[in-house]
């Protein structure tokens, strides 16, 4: 760890050398067995989405006799005259904005905590961790009042502005942990090259922390995509609704529920998140291990 004479490595196969074949086989077997168990519930959901509403209590995966695509048709029609596709677009917009906001704000804050010596840093750090610890239900009402005073009801500002101001402490902390794993020698080298903090941030830390940034992007996207309470409280105009709001409204405990539509749209709404995951996961593997260190 004390030297920085690592040679650059390219190629995908990082980590320790590949294991021998029987081992490899065993490993695949384990993974597949586990994968089947893990995946069953999702396969069931897919089956249920192609099944008649009445046959919903069928625990099997195969839709069988009750096969129908009504769920997709009905679900896609949406709620209150707004098509489900609109909710998908809304969700995508919100989630994308949140990703950008979180990447910028959280990495800035994380750099400060991880790499800069400034007064009261530890106090701020403790406070930052502290903000994670209060259950959000107790600040729901005060926060609603504040955002309402600001005229933010029926806008996406309550979703994005807090993220722009790095209030997602989870990700600040995540990035701090990853930034700190990057050897300081690299900073020193950059400093010798005449870089200031901004230079180190952009040229050393960010490139080397790609997996962490990708993780932040993926998680932020998924959490925003799945977020239910924020849109429930802050959005009134159905044109602005996001996917989870629409999904919940398919089920009503006091009257009939549209299970087919629920499952069908649950499946459909998984696709964009899955897409984002697959798009970003390439970056997950590009750590120090693969890109190498320019010593």
């Amino acid at each position: 760890m004390t030297t920085h004479t690592f040679t650059a490595r390219r190629g995908r196969k990082a980590g320790p050398p590949r294991a021998t074949n029987p081992r490899q086989f065993l490993r695949h077997l384990t993974l597949i067995a586990l994968g089947v168990v893990m995946f069953y519930p999702l396969a069931w959901m897919l089956g249920a989405s192609l099944r008649d509403d009445g046959a919903i209590a069928d625990p099997g995966v195969w839709p069988g006799d009750g096969f129908t695509v009504d769920g997709y048709v009905e679900g896609w029609r949406g709620v209150s005259g707004v098509a489900f596709g609109r909710f998908m677009l809304n969700s995508f917009l919100v989630a994308a904005l949140c990703v950008v906001a979180n990447l910028i704000a959280c990495s800035l804050a994380a750099y400060a905590f991880a790499r800069v010596d400034f007064r009261l840093r530890r106090l701020w750090f403790a406070l930052m961790i502290g903000t994670l610890m209060l259950p959000h239900h107790v600040i729901l009402i005060p926060q609603y009042m504040m955002f309402r005073e600001l005229g933010w009801i029926d806008t996406y500002l309550p979703f994005v502005v807090p993220k722009l101001l790095a209030t997602d402490a989870f990700f600040v902390f995540l990035l701090v942990q990853f930034f700190r794993a990057i050897p300081r020698e690299l900073d020193d080298a950059a400093r010798l090259d005449g870089c200031g903090h901004l230079g180190i941030f952009f040229r050393v830390i960010l490139p080397l922390a790609k997996p962490a940034l990708a993780t932040t992007a993926i998680f932020t996207f998924i959490y925003s995509w799945n977020d239910f309470f924020t849109p429930l409280i802050y959005l009134t105009d159905p044109d602005l609704y996001t996917v989870p709001l629409a999904l919940r409204s398919f089920i009503d405990t006091t009257s009939s529920s549209a299970f087919g539509a629920l499952f069908a749209m649950s499946v459909v709404s998984l696709l964009p998140v899955l897409g984002v995951f697959i798009a970003f996961q390439r970056l997950l593997v590009e750590g120090i291990a693969t890109t190498g260190l320019r010593g």
């Binding site: 609603y144 309402r148 159905p238 919940r248 409204s249």
Partner: peptide
């Protein structure tokens, strides 16, 4: 214009909005 939610969610939302003076 309309605004619909599931029963329990509806009540929760109404509570928050009632506290903050933002009911429709």
């Amino acid at each position: 214009s309309v605004e619909v939610a599931e029963y329990l969610n509806y009540i929760e939302r109404m509570t928050v909005r009632a506290a903050g003076g933002g009911l429709s």
